[in-house]
Simulated assay, not measured.
Amino acid sequence: MSKRLFTASRVVPAAPEEIFALLADPARHVEIDGSGTLQRLIRGQGSMQLGSKFTIGMKAYGFPYRVTSKVVEYEENRLIAWCHFIKNRWRFGLEPVEGGTRVTESADYRDIRFPHLTMRMVKDDLIEDSIATTLDNLVKRFS
């Protein structure tokens, strides 16, 4: 990994409230996951708030595992972000624009734990592709 902050945006043809409802419900993350790693919600169903925790069953490189994340940024219908024990942060910002809502997704690895290990495991192009696919999935979901 050479970069530490990845970000991309798309205009989604829906109101911020509709998009935020999907993003704030971890059970629905599988609907839009662009990484292909999310398998199912294990714990934490319902609308998240600041401080909420949820556990997702994941699978990468053929290995199943669980990740518990905590909501660390929250502004209803505008911003939601969560991180897990490594402290990389996944963030979605929503801004009303003509034709819908500009959704900006970012993966922030600037303050991670174990940077040397994580930097070897995570590839820039995989994160960029994952974000692009997630945003494209959001557009399709609301089109």
Rank of each mutant, 00 (worst) to 15 (best):
T7Q: 12
H84Y: 09
R89E: 13
T104G: 11
D25K: 00
W82M: 02
N137F: 11
N137G: 13
M48Y: 02
T118W: 06
T55Q: 00
F92C: 05
I19W: 11
M1C: 10
S47Q: 01
K53D: 03
I32Q: 00
H84W: 09
P13W: 07
I86G: 00
D33Y: 05
I32G: 01
G100W: 10
W82R: 01
Y109R: 03
K3I: 04
A132C: 02
S69N: 12
P13N: 13
F142A: 05
P16M: 10
V11F: 02
R110L: 06
V11N: 14
T118L: 15
R120L: 15
R40Q: 12
V122P: 00
G34M: 13
T68Q: 01
Y74S: 03
L135Q: 14
D108V: 13
E76W: 02
N137R: 14
G62A: 13
H116R: 07
I86N: 09
V11C: 07
L79T: 05
R110C: 03
V72K: 03
S9Q: 07
A27K: 04
S143G: 11
Y109K: 01
F114V: 08
L138K: 10
V139G: 01
G99Q: 15
R10F: 05
T118H: 03
F114S: 03
E17F: 00
E76C: 04
P16V: 14
A132D: 15
G34N: 14
T55C: 03
L23P: 04
A132S: 14
R89P: 05
A27T: 04
L50A: 10
D33W: 06
L5N: 03
T7M: 06
T133K: 15
E18I: 00
D129P: 02
R120G: 05
Q39A: 04
R113K: 11
T133G: 02
F20W: 07
P115Y: 06
M1T: 13
